[in-house]
Amino acid sequence: MINGLERYKKKWNITTENAIKPGLAAITAALEEIGNPHKQGRFVHIAGTNGKGSTAALLSAVLRAHGKTVGSFYSPGIIDVHDQIQMNGEPVTRQALDHVMCELSKVTTALTDFELLTAAAFLQFRNAAPDVSIIEAGMGGRFDSTNVIDPQVAIIPSIAKEHTNFLGTELKDIAYHKAGIIKKWKPVIAGPLENEALQVVKEEARQQHAELIIPNSPYEGELKLKGAHQKWNASLAYHAAMEVLGAEFNEAAAHQALAQAEIAYRFETAAPGLIFDGAHNEASIHALVETIQADFPDEQVRIVLGMLRDKDYEKVLRKLETISDNFVFIDFSNERALPAEKLFRLSNSKIKTIKNLYDILPVTADEEVTIVTGSLYLLSDMRKPGIPFLSEYLNVSD
């Protein structure tokens, strides 16, 4: 489910399938009907298990610091469909999205929701003509609907086990999908990958005659973003900007942009004592736990957790239980959401409750920090109209 997309489908009488159907045939045919907007402009393509959104946002910040206009396509959104398509860091307007949806209403090829949104992004970027468009793959890469572009550079921040029902159960299988975004003669920048995945990426780069760039170390400058993993994401963004900008690249501008960048749901302080983090699989939860231990070594931690049923939720829960024995399990509105009761039954924590998303969370004591995590869709729901203002969760005033 893509929050807010239904409004446009109803307005413009667009019928789609709310399903995941990897493959490029439908999106290619649909884009052909509207003049192949994906063949216009310059692109950066990002695929990986974790770090895609952060790397995209960091790269956007660096490019804009060099005076470039930047389009960005994210998956999923922060609040709804509008922030999945951005221009210079700002969500697409309803007027602009209406314009592209009107054009897409004439397409006869049957599409899924995500294929429709991908096509909308390409149309918006054709209309707005940014200097660079950064495209985040939705799932996998090779057969993801975004993989119709010929990017100037590809980025693979990380590879871990995810979506095994679609991508395969072995790391090399998943790497095969991620490496599918590598294009002939175009460089690819990769983060610190496990050897099994790295060998797949190396072989794909060799077959495509693509230069493989692997930074030797994480970014060493200052960041507002918390966590060692963000240092690696910043390093990838820095190297990607060098490739995109060439002789225009300015080190000072890049460092300043990275130092000032803030990204929603990446260890974000939503209110005093309340942290939002979009970690949703074993690898990203591991990074979250390390960041919590580094930033809150002496505080009591309460975990508010809601997850999708197709994630490895038991491993995530066990990892989080190493730093807390106080959990609130949340039901939220997504057809893939795991019932909070399931997490409750699996949990070994001493203190555990189930809450509906629309209930006000328990007040946090001064010496306690609350971490809301498990799904970007949960965090998006928490910022929908009708949810109590965030400070009310902590009973603090502005």
Rank of each mutant, 00 (worst) to 15 (best):
Q300V: 05
D80A: 13
G89E: 00
Q124S: 15
H286S: 14
R42V: 04
Q256H: 07
G51H: 05
S105V: 01
E220L: 14
E136Y: 02
I285M: 10
L361I: 07
T28D: 06
V200M: 05
P91Q: 05
I34C: 04
K231Y: 01
G138S: 08
D312H: 05
N233V: 08
K172T: 11
I2Y: 07
K186C: 11
D325H: 15
V153R: 01
I20D: 00
K9I: 10
S217G: 03
R318E: 12
R383T: 00
T169I: 07
Y358A: 13
N281E: 04
E194G: 10
G386P: 05
F276T: 03
L361G: 02
K384T: 01
L236Y: 06
S349H: 05
N50T: 02
H209N: 08
K311D: 13
T164Y: 05
N326F: 05
I181N: 05
Y8C: 04
P339E: 10
M382Y: 00
L198T: 00
L376H: 06
A337V: 03
K319N: 06
K226M: 13
S133D: 03
I181E: 01
A129L: 14
I46G: 01
P22A: 11
E103W: 07
V372D: 00
R302H: 07
K202Y: 04
K183P: 05
Q293Y: 06
K9L: 15
E194I: 06
T269M: 14
L379H: 05
V363Q: 15
S133V: 01
T69I: 07
G51M: 10
G71N: 03
A160H: 13
I214A: 04
M242C: 07
K21F: 02
A26S: 09
S75L: 14
N18Y: 06
G168K: 07
D331M: 14
A175C: 08
N165W: 08
E115N: 09
L346S: 13
R42N: 10
R142M: 09
V107Q: 04
Y8M: 06
T164W: 00
V100S: 03
D359R: 12
G138K: 13
I214E: 06
A253S: 11
E220P: 02
P157A: 08
E170I: 07
K342T: 14
L343P: 01
S375P: 00
F166V: 03
H177Y: 11
Q86I: 02
V328D: 07
I34P: 00
G227N: 07
G180C: 10
D80M: 11
P76W: 10
V62D: 00
F114T: 06
